[in-house]
Design a protein around this nucleic acid. Structure first.
Length: 434
RNA sequence: GUGCCUAUAGUUUAGUGGUAAAACGCUGGAUUGUGGUCCCGGUGUCGAGGGUUCGAUUCCCUCUAGGCACCCCA
């Protein structure tokens, strides 16, 4: 048979054990954090009807969607995020008690051009609150974002917060056309990348009649206030821009509660961030790692009160957050914050004497039942090879049992990290390892 | 989707118009009831396909993948 060349799709990856162990550890930590806030798990299919997904993310989103005809000629698409499927689930399960807090950790697919920290298949860890308009819901989402990162060992991050309500109120006050508004928001979103001057330049080029407002827009978007340290400035914000007064008051209220829930987090009101997804209506936020800014936002979200209504007669408000697991992992790896381990196996039983096979098997069975991850070497070969196998794989303990030990009813427990060993009763092994 | 850069053993790299080298890794051996040291051997149609050439891994083209920028985003 001809050899098939092994290859993998652009932007798709295999996760070998050393990496997957670390990823799973991260996911466990994230789930624990989400559950501590009362979020419940949900799983949805990878594939959805295309009409469920299209038109919710803007033109760019539709372009990046994996979409095809299935074998039954149905127009289907791989999910682009976890939020739209959630909206579909909520609309299909009207009797769900609300507010409902749900989380989901699953892969999503976008046919984007890959770069570091950017893949075509990547995991999102979403937490959303469905059925509440309370500012406390928004505040909890921000606090959840902050405390989850902290649980992961990340301290140097800043959560930048804005509000679609603020953005809309501001641009309406300027009387911009719809196209100019979109162009302005897009330009302003690059503030941290190209700076105020760059934004001003782009605005004067891309805006039509609204170009005369360029200075006002830049002044507005340049606002970046540390919510903890610059309280006075925050309070004065609506004096500067009267049109956004109500929306600002709401946002301040959200951040005040979030700051109580997550006292060590750094929340910054940044009026330049926009978020590309079409469905956001209220508070929006992005999270940057201070020591790895090149990855952009690793955790973001916001309020989307209109989305679920697209699938249902009843409008259902919602607010949520999403961690980009792969991007965060790549960044943490670069910052040396990933806990490395090559295996989860704790003990290897040296297969040393063929006549003792039944004893080895019984021992493996007993250790496994006692919660010790155990492997039995398959071939009866020299001990040297077996010990070296265990030590190379990062297995901590080797269990040596030959005719001498069999006579005494004991076993040698060897610690491969320390290089020490002791002879103990067989029944004591599990306890000694733990 | 567009533009630029890159592609040599599992990994990190060297090198050349006449079919390749180092380190580490992996694997086998030696030592035969004890690994991480040492010794010996193996591990590559130089990303894939095509073209130029007497001859290409080395030059050209296409494709694929990685990186960067744009776009957008996690």
């Amino acid at each position: 048979m001809a050899k098939i060349e092994p290859k993998i799709l652009k932007g798709f990856r295999d996760f070998l054990p050393a990496q997957q162990i670390a990823r799973q550890g991260m996911i466990e930590t994230i789930k624990t954090s989400y559950e501590s806030f009362g979020f419940e798990p949900l799983e949805t299919p990878a594939l959805e009807y295309a009409e469920t997904l299209t038109g919710k993310y803007g033109d760019e989103g539709d372009k990046l969607m994996y979409r095809f005809k299935d074998n039954g000629d149905r127009d289907v698409a791989l999910r682009y995020d976890l939020t739209i499927p959630l909206a579909r689930v909520v609309a299909m399960n009207g009797s769900m008690k609300k507010p409902w807090k749900r989380y989901q950790v699953s892969p999503v697919w976008r046919a984007d051009n890959p770069q570091k920290g950017r893949y075509r298949e990547f995991y999102q860890c979403d937490a959303d609150i469905v059925g509440s308009t309370s500012v406390l819901a928004d505040a909890e989402v921000l606090a959840l974002a902050a405390s989850t990162l902290q649980r992961l060992g990340v301290d140097d991050f800043v959560i930048r917060i804005n509000s679609r309500a603020i953005i809309n109120a501001f641009y309406e006050s300027l009387g911009l056309s719809a196209e100019d508004k979109v162009a302005a928001i897009r330009a302003v979103d690059k503030m941290d990348k190209i700076g105020a001057e760059g934004v001003k330049k782009e605005l004067s080029q891309s805006l039509g009649a609204g170009a005369k407002s360029a200075d006002d827009i830049v002044a507005f978007a340049a606002v970046s206030i540390d919510a903890m340290n610059d309280r006075a400035e925050l309070a004065a914000l609506s004096e500067r821009f009267p049109a956004i007064k109500t929306a600002v008051a709401d946002l301040i209220s959200i951040i005040e509660s979030a700051s109580v829930l997550a006292p060590k987090a750094r929340f910054v009101v940044d009026l330049s961030i926009a978020r590309g997804l079409d469905y956001y209506t209220g508070m929006i936020f992005e999270t940057n790692l201070i020591k790895a800014p090149q990855y952009g936002s690793v955790l973001s979200g916001g309020r989307y009160d209109g989305l679920i209504g697209m699938f249902s007669n009843q409008p259902v408000p919602a607010v949520g957050a999403s961690i980009g697991l792969d991007r965060l992992y790549t960044a943490l790896e670069e910052l040396d914050l990933v806990k490395a381990a090559n295996t989860t196996t704790k003990a290897l039983i040296v297969n040393f004497d063929e006549t003792l096979r039944a004893d080895y098997l019984r021992l493996a069975s007993d250790l496994r039942a006692a919660g010790v991850n155990t492997i039995l070497y398959f071939d009866t070969t020299d001990m040297k090879k077996q010990l070296s196998y265990a030590s190379d794989k990062g297995i901590k303990y080797a269990l040596i049992y030959g005719s001498e030990e069999a006579k005494e009813g004991k076993i040698v427990l060897k610690d491969l990290e320390k290089g020490s060993q002791e002879k103990i009763a067989i029944g004591e092994v599990a306890k000694a390892i733990k």
